[in-house]
Amino acid sequence: MISADRTLVDKIRLQFRRSESIRGYTLLSPTLLIVLLGLLFPLIILFTLSFWKQEYVDLIQTFTLKNYGDFFEKKIYYLILYRSIRISAFVMFVTVLLAYPLAYFIAFHVQKNKMIWIILVTIPFWTSYLLRVFSWKVILGYNGVINSSLLSLGLISEPLEFLLYNPFAVVITLAHAWAAVAILPIYVSLEKIDRSLIEASRDLGESAVATFIRVTLPLSLPGVIAACLLVFIPTVGDYVTPALVGGTRGIMIGNIIQSMFGKALNWPLGAALSIISMLTVTAAVCLLLGATQLFKKKVS
């Protein structure tokens, strides 16, 4: 009797849970459908097209590995992808390194109005990306803001040429563009740290620096890793910044992919390069995560 009751209760409960779940999914389904149609489906098309070939404007729908072969045969694509990864890794390093002290400052030193600081940091992130990149071009240019002000102050006799059209300009511009994306996750992870752990470490005689290295830094690591990924992944494919401030030495894989849809007109090759880039980025991300695991082990 009792067991019969229980199964009945279980059944009702299961039914309820099921219907709750169904109701939830129904409500979520329009959004999911949009993402399926607007993201997953196009990515499948991208993958399929990477095995096709193009003759003038016509896409030839026969399976071929030629596009992938091109990537490995023609050194230029491989070299530019390698350069993009290197530039993005450097951007990631610089951005996170610059962002950490600021996130630390907001989390530990600002007592009132933390929100104001967070808003101040995020506002430039929301304003037009294209215009910010363009603005850096104006600042770093041969006749730009920096050169003309140094000239009029008499500090230099002719404009500095190393400011614009090189990887250095790309790194500065990207570090600026992605600053907020790095600061926020680091700030959140620092804010979560239980202050008594830090006090305990200090009370037990560790110096401020040792406390930071052995307590604060490891505990904020999730935020740092999130920041690294959020900066690294999108910057590899960036093409606006290299196009405007990178010059020929700052060309990245995004520019090559873009050219396949413009002047070079080879969509399948562009698709294959996109797929290869995404796979490479995924591999790099796995490496990064593996490295942090090692680091964690070492620290503890």
Binding site: P42, I233, P234, V236, D238, Y239, Q258, G270, S274
Partner: peptide
């Protein structure tokens, strides 16, 4: 994902 990849897909 990089916007360019979303764009071309």
């Amino acid at each position: 994902i990089p916007e360019i990849i979303l764009g071309i897909s």
